[in-house]
Simulated scan of single mutants.
Amino acid sequence: MSQNPTSTSNFPKTIYVIQHLAFEDLGSLEDIFYQLGYRVRYFEAGVEDLTQALEHDGLTVILGGPIGVYENQDYPFLDQEIALLKTRLSKQLPTLGICLGAQLIAYALGAKVYAGQYKEIGWSQIEIKDLPNNILLPLKNVEVLHWHGDTFELPENAELLASSKYYPHQAFQLGNNILALQFHIEVLEESLEKWLIGHTCEIRKADLSIQQLREDNRKYASHLEQSCAEVIQIFLKQINAN
């Protein structure tokens, strides 16, 4: 990463991260946060109590996972996670959601989350909406990683930031502090092999080429890592401006 960023945060220096699957971690975001002077603490959903993470005054990141927001009968921990998230969002505490995390934010804000008609897995560009100061402008003409089958309606008062060919709601923001990304901005080139192993059943069921996913990762991931750093720094500046 070419940047040599410095942190100007006026909120807690620890970032809490809710993880739903062991190999879906912060990826490139982790190094970005460390370079900005933050500490990172992970919480394992379904194993640990998420109260501390979701009542945190600083930034909380909610990562992806293969389960659906609506599968609470099979995964009862979702009820607590959603209830705590509703309270968190009502206070407009700094929150970033990625993939399942974005779906949880949408659901907690009252929007419908449901299974889509197409499994969107692989690298492609998103349509960045023509908005003043769109936080995702660094991703224009950049391939990002998609890995989802669920989608969501746009929550009330949320601003749509990006769309894709199959799913119109790829990213939204609510005020300065709440950002939800359906796609994976955080993927790290050197770590995707863990995804290819862990998601092998899903990949084969979707009749996708593991070799192609691997090749596309080599082709696109490093550029995404650079753009990801720009996006997250813009987001942190927005939070700090409050």
Results as ranks from 00 to 15, higher is better:
Arg88Ile: 06
Leu154Ala: 06
Ser164Gln: 02
Asn10His: 11
Thr60Pro: 04
Phe183Pro: 00
Ser124Asn: 11
Thr95Val: 07
Leu109Trp: 05
Ile18Met: 13
Ala22Asn: 14
Asp150Asn: 13
Lys119Met: 08
Gln3Met: 12
Thr60Ser: 11
Glu230Ala: 15
Leu188Gly: 00
Gly97Lys: 02
Ile121Trp: 00
Asn141Tyr: 14
Ala83Gln: 14
Lys129Pro: 00
Ala45Thr: 07
Asp130His: 14
Glu153Ile: 04
Gly58Asn: 07
Ala111Phe: 05
Gln103Leu: 10
Leu54Asp: 05
Gly64Ile: 02
Ile234Phe: 05
Asn141Thr: 09
Val187Leu: 08
Tyr167Val: 05
Asp216Pro: 06
Ile67Val: 14
Ile232Ser: 01
Thr151Cys: 07
Ala180Ser: 09
Pro12Thr: 13
His20Glu: 08
Ala206Gly: 07
Ile178Arg: 02
Leu208Trp: 09
Glu48Ala: 13
Arg218Gly: 11
Ala241Phe: 07
Val231Trp: 03
Ser209Thr: 02
Gln212Lys: 14
Lys237Arg: 14
Gln35Asn: 15
Leu131Cys: 14
Asn133Asp: 15
Gln3Ala: 13
Ile234His: 06
Tyr167Glu: 03
Thr151Glu: 04
Glu225Arg: 09
Ser28Cys: 12
Asn240Glu: 15
Ile32Tyr: 03
Arg214Glu: 11
Arg39Phe: 08
Arg214Asp: 11
Tyr167Thr: 03
Gly27Phe: 00
Tyr70Asn: 15
Asp207Ser: 08
Ala115Gln: 13
Leu93Asp: 01
Val69Glu: 05
Leu192Val: 06
Gln182Val: 00
Glu189Val: 09
Gln3Gly: 12
Asp150Ala: 05
Leu78Lys: 05
Glu190Val: 12
Arg218Ser: 14
Lys165Met: 06
Thr87Arg: 14
Gln103Asn: 12
Gln238Phe: 05
Leu85Pro: 01
Lys194Leu: 09
Asn72Asp: 14
Phe23His: 10
Gly149Lys: 05
Ile178Tyr: 06
